[in-house]
Design a protein around this nucleic acid. Structure first.
Lengths: 215, 215
DNA sequence: TGGAAACCATAGCATCGCTATATATTGTGG
DNA sequence: CCACAATATATAGCGATGCTATGGTTTCCA
């Protein structure tokens, strides 16, 4: 398999799978290739089977998450940035709920772990900056705090995107993150201000009512 | 084969499905009834199809969770009780990871929501007692605080039981819950003590190294 | 005891992921 | 420029899936 395998068909199928996921159509081997001009065998040359398709879709999900997190710019207020990263994480999960579900329902392999670590690293760096700028205590481990922020973000995303909680429950992110950051040493008043700023920073704030969305 | 009108077959199949889930065997219509003496049609008379089987399995999961939560006895220290409920939630999820996954991967229907609400109510009552006993501020909404505790518990359970985090990351539950309860008004020192007591209370503490379990 | 209702076994259908084989396409050495 | 080898695609089919139709068996109750 040395030759250049048509990379256009690969991303076409991944995009189509993501779109079918969003429109709630079942993604099967035959329905995936239907209408695209490629045959079922192409799936096996490109992905090695449906498992490979799901793997690629997961990576697409992580890729979109990485893009979202990258839109959060670094400011002088690291607590604000940390909150903005959490908010971006949630808005990404809510904009791609089925993709988010696929990302976390299969067992993680090494590539997934790498992608997840890369995303987590955004949070780690922000936590480190918050500590080094004096907002958090010196004994705060940035990785631990980032993991705890991730736990809050994933818990909310999971319960709201694929679970029983309604969308407005995302607003719990504000008090939860505030409590965590205050426990890390931040001043309560200052923390509240930073969190509220960061929460509403991303392009599509996850807590505000979406345009035209009805409960 | 002969036959008794057999309500026992229902719970037999549910139990078998849960066991197959635990042993990682694929649960299919034919494999589910294989060796049990009941035929494939029985699945349709009892459950109406495989969807009904999964629904029943989800209910079984919620039922086991309810049993776990019920083992947490009420004490004078409501913060300890609240933590113990979270700890019991996590130990249940870790003892039945596949069941836990099934509980939260399908879309919730009314029965599931009822079961979840019932479990959540345990937390709500404990939060209410913590507030009324003066540990939390008077303006704390027990339902909100219970939901936030649930978010932490579900986030940890999901990331550890079916996700990328190793088991020892469950220990993050202690600082997360402490931060939340302190933000609700509890005294930091007292809160830490209560949380540590409650965390190690359930029969199988989720953070301790399991017996004979190797990383 | 007889009839009605509930229950179950068998066979078969459409579809699923996947594979084997044959054909078309592509890249490369002479 | 052509013949050949390697790769990609297309077709057909296999085992297995969930599900349904149909007819036979068992159970219950009047």
């Amino acid at each position: 398999m040395a030759r250049t395998k048509n990379p256009a068909a690969r991303s076409l199928l991944i995009e189509r799978a993501a779109q079918m996921l969003r429109s709630r159509e079942p993604v099967t081997l035959r329905s995936l290739v239907a209408g695209t001009g490629v045959s079922t065998m192409a799936v096996y040359t490109y992905f090695g089977g449906m498992d490979g398709v799901w793997k690629a879709v997961r990576q697409e999900g992580f890729s979109r998450l990485a893009v979202r997190l990258a839109t959060v710019t670094v400011s002088a207020d690291a607590v604000r940035d940390l909150t903005a990263l959490g908010s971006a994480y949630l808005s990404n999960a809510l904009d791609n709920p089925d993709l988010y579900r696929v990302m976390f329902d299969a067992t993680f392999d090494l590539e997934d772990s790498h992608a997840a670590d890369q995303s987590l690293h955004h949070l780690v760096r922000a936590a480190e900056r918050a500590r080094d700028s004096g907002r958090f205590r010196g004994d705060v481990d940035p990785l631990e705090l980032a993991t705890q922020s991730w736990t809050i973000g994933h818990g909310l995303a999971s319960l709201v995107a694929t679970g029983p909680l309604p969308r407005q429950m995302l607003a719990h992110g504000v008090p939860l993150l505030t409590a965590l950051f205050v426990s890390a040493g931040d001043d309560p008043g200052r923390c509240r201000s930073s969190v509220e700023q960061g929460w509403n920073l991303p392009s599509s704030p996850p807590c505000d009512d979406a345009p035209g969305e009805k409960a």
